[in-house]
């Protein structure tokens, strides 16, 4: 039996404001899912809710990994169970070297029962693996000595997220616009790298507005999110349609969700003023 990540009737609110309004999604390890949808439709919210961001409150429904409820777990426990998210906007941690950060993270994820203070994975072994993986991502090893995302360019941050994916080898990975901020060559490299890390070893949820990242990772399923719901699911052809023709057809077909979406975005415009 492959591992299964199952999202059922998920409702999520942020600061009391409902964002997700009943999402159903099932991802098996080895499958690639593309998640698309206009700005503000709730894609990142879904990812953050799966990862366990404390500000994203599940008000109904559930997220299970092989039947175990993830909603009861803090983000670090989910990470140790094999969930990973490459963030749309990664955080920087000044004063903490990328290599120290990754060595600790890798140790915790690979030894889920490790208690704080117990041995980290051996330095030599770790360095060797890190160096090899950075090489494949064409990252200068200098990055390992820099502080986590501190002063990284947009593209460098996204590459560093892929490096973390490669090191942590999760069962399920959510890639939230990992292609944004990357130049054309870098997107191609990212797309290849993800395939190389092993599409077949992971369940992938790729959130993207472009088709480049999917080039080497053709989705088994494509989903469209609108107004906090997945309104349509199809195959590669759906992803291609949305890329070439946009969301016009979807908006017309699901007026209620579209109204919700517009309302969510409009509220943002007000609160952002």
């Amino acid at each position: 039996m492959p591992d299964i990540l199952k999202i059922e009737n998920l409702h999520v609110a942020v600061a009391g404001k409902p964002i997700l309004k009943g999402v159903d999604l099932e991802i098996r390890r080895g499958q690639t899912h593309a998640l698309m949808g206009p700005n503000g439709s709730g894609k990142s919210t879904l990812g953050l809710a799966i990862m366990g961001h404390p500000g994203y409150e599940a008000t109904a429904g559930g997220i299970t990994l092989n039947g175990d409820e993830l909603l009861d777990m803090e983000a670090d426990e989910r990470a140790r169970r094999g969930i990973f998210m490459a963030f749309q906007r990664p955080l920087s941690i000044p004063g903490v070297k990328m290599s120290d950060f990754l060595r600790h993270a890798t140790t915790n994820v690979r030894n889920p029962d490790r208690k704080e203070g117990e041995e980290l994975i051996p330095m030599r072994e770790f360095r060797k693996e890190l160096k090899a993986k950075m090489g494949r991502l064409q990252m200068d090893t200098e990055f390992a000595r820099r502080y986590v995302n501190d002063g990284f360019s947009g593209g460098e941050m996204k590459r560093a997220e892929i490096l973390q994916l490669a090191m942590l080898q999760p069962k399920f990975a959510i890639l939230d616009e990992t292609d944004s901020g990357l130049d054309a060559d870098a997107v191609r490299l990212a797309s290849q790298s993800i395939a190389e890390i092993g599409r077949e070893k992971m369940g992938l949820l790729i959130i993207t507005h472009h088709d480049k990242l999917l080039e080497h990772n053709p989705p088994d399923f494509a989903h469209v999110m609108l107004g906090g719901r997945i309104v349509e699911t199809g195959g590669t052809e759906l992803a291609e349609e949305l890329h070439s023709q946009g969301y016009e057809r979807i908006r017309e077909k699901y007026p209620e969700a579209d109204a919700d979406n517009q309302q969510m975005v409009a509220k943002d415009a007000v609160t952002n003023m």
Binding site: G55, R78, A79, L91, I93, F101, H104
Partner: peptide, 16 residues
């Protein structure tokens, strides 16, 4: 808090 969450998403406990 965002920094704490970022580290937790990489397997760090909150304390760590």
């Amino acid at each position: 808090d965002e920094m704490i969450f970022y580290a937790q998403s990489r397997g760090f406990t909150r304390e760590e």
